[in-house]
Every structure is written in C-alpha cells, then in structure tokens.
C-alpha cells in the first residue's frame, strides 16, 4: 500500500496544478459563499451571524419565486426553439445551397457578439417610441409589433428570451452542422435504397443520429440559462418591477447595489444547488459520457 503510494507520486504531482486551481477557484468560493449566506453582511464591514434566516427570508421572498419561474421559462423557451431553428438551418445549409458558407457565418455572428452589444442593439430595435419594430409595424400595419415588449411586466421576460434565441441559434446551428457532417453517407444511401423519403430520412435517421448533439446542446443550454446575466441586465435590468429578474441578476443587485452580500450569497448557494442537482440528474438520466460521446 505504501509502495503503491510512492509509485503514484509522479501522477499526483501531475494532478496538483489542476487540484490547486480547482480548490482555489471552485471549492473555496463555494465554501466562502455558503459561509457568507449565514451572515447579515454588507460585503465590507464585519458581518453578523444570523444562521439560516437568510434562507427563510429567501423562500418567502416573492421576487425569488419570480426568478425561479423565469429560469424555468428561460430553460424551456430558449433550448427547444434554439435547437429546432438551429437544426433546420443546419439541414438547409448542409445541402450546399448557394453561398452557404456566407450564410453560416452570418447566422453565427450574433453568438460571438458581446451580449452587451446585442442588448443595446435590441433595446433600440424594440424601443416602443422610436424603434425599428415600431417603424416596421407602422409601415406594414402590423400594429402588434409596436407593443412595449421590454416595458410590459407580462412580456419582458419573453422579449429577453426571444433576443437570447436570436443570439444563440447560430451556435446551435453550428453544432448541428458539425454533427451532420459526421453522419456516414452510406447510411443515408442505404435509407434511400430502402425507399425512405426526405422526411423519413430526416426524422428517422438524421435526427436520432444527432443524439449526442441534442444532449450537448441541452446541457449547455441549461447551464447557460442558469447563469444568464448580461442580456437581462442590459435589456431590462431585471425589470420592470423584477418581472424579468433571473437568479444571477437578483444576486448581483443584492450584493452590490443593496449592500446585502449575505443575502446575495444565499441566492448564489441556491443557484449552485439547482445547477448541481440539474447536472447530476442529467448525468443520471443520460450517462456520464453523453457530452463527450463516450459510452454510458
């Protein structure tokens, strides 16, 4: 036993840098946060231990429930449309239509823009007073386009989600394009010989063959949804009246604007728990290797 340990020392040394980084940037902040969540603390001056009362306050906080609802909406309403539109775009571009490379680049551009830029641009587009959508609405008679999407508490979160879908669809498309190019053409030929039409080929062969892509996008989508910050912050600042607040924006607000770092840490701890539970259940359902394409 001792001999094997000595034999393993080189291996452990190789692990050490990663382990140190992991401890410093993952483990330590989590512990720090958990500890801070038990404090009434402004982030600067000595805090005061209050036990679990931050958690009790949080679960009674109606805005916290709004943020949970918004995260749920965000997960459902970004991942599915993003994947569907991305998949269809990828299918279209995979046929080698005219200037497909240019289209591919254009569709992907929003994903590499800064969310702040995207936010400002879309705010102008959706500005109900003088925005592009209003202009289009007036010119075409489609008056519903003149709606005050970002300012209406019932619509704000959906407006932000729509922008998010616009932004990240190109990303899904790229994933699907990569997946499509890995599909063995002989399989498609076989299907053709068997008499499968285009619809059948797409639904029965291509779609299932892209399972690992679907799952990757699902996991990335859930993680991305939970940590969404910039787009919401720029487009609505979580407003109006917290109607589009997400957990990270709400935590940020408490930590830095409302001087309650303790409460913000409580929100973060809940966020960590949600993220870990989600990831673990994904792993449980789909197996550890689904994202790398490894065996279950």
């Amino acid at each position: 036993m001792r001999a094997t340990f000595i034999r393993n020392i080189p291996g452990l040394l190789f692990l050490l840098p990663a382990l140190i980084l992991f401890l410093a940037f993952v483990v330590y902040p989590i512990i720090y946060n958990v500890q801070a969540s038990t404090l009434k603390w402004d982030g600067v001056n000595p805090g005061q231990f209050v036990g679990l009362s931050n958690y009790l306050d949080l679960f009674r906080d109606p805005i916290f429930l709004i943020t949970l609802r918004n995260s749920g909406l965000w997960i459902a309403l970004t991942i599915i449309p993003q994947a569907m539109i991305g998949f269809l775009l990828a299918l279209a571009l995979n046929r080698g239509i005219f200037a497909s490379t240019a289209y591919r680049a254009i569709f992907f551009v929003p994903a590499i823009l800064s969310p702040v830029v995207v936010g400002i641009v879309w705010q102008r587009i959706m500005d109900p007073f003088n925005g592009v959508l209003v202009g289009v609405g007036k010119a075409t008679g489609l008056t519903w386009l003149s709606g005050n999407f970002l300012g209406d508490p019932n619509a704000a979160i959906f407006a932000v989600i729509a922008v998010n879908v616009w932004m990240w669809t190109g990303f899904s498309m790229l994933f699907y394009l990569a997946g499509l190019q890995l599909i063995d053409s002989s399989m498609l030929e076989a299907a053709k010989i068997d008499g499968a039409n285009g619809f059948h080929t797409t639904v029965r062969i291509i779609f299932p063959l892209l399972k690992s892509t679907h799952l990757s996008l699902l996991l990335l989508g859930i993680i991305g949804s939970l940590k969404t910050f910039e787009l919401v912050y720029v487009l609505t600042q979580g407003g109006p009246a917290h109607a589009s607040d997400m957990l990270p924006t709400y935590a940020f607000q408490h930590a830095f604007q409302l001087q309650s770092a303790g409460y913000a840490s409580t929100i973060s701890v809940v966020l960590i728990v949600i993220a870990v539970v989600t990831s673990l259940s994904m792993v449980r359902v789909f197996g550890t290797g689904f994202i790398t394409g490894d065996e279950k």
Binding site: L23, Y28, L39
Partner: peptide, 16 residues
C-alpha cells in the same frame, strides 16, 4: 484536499 480547503477557509472567511 480537506486540509487544504480548511486552511483556505480559515484564512479567508466571509463577513470579516
């Protein structure tokens, strides 16, 4: 790992 984490936690607590 436990030792290292404990050491870190002791040196940098929240609320101090």
């Amino acid at each position: 790992a436990i030792l290292a984490v404990t050491a870190l936690a002791l040196s940098g607590c929240a609320g101090v």
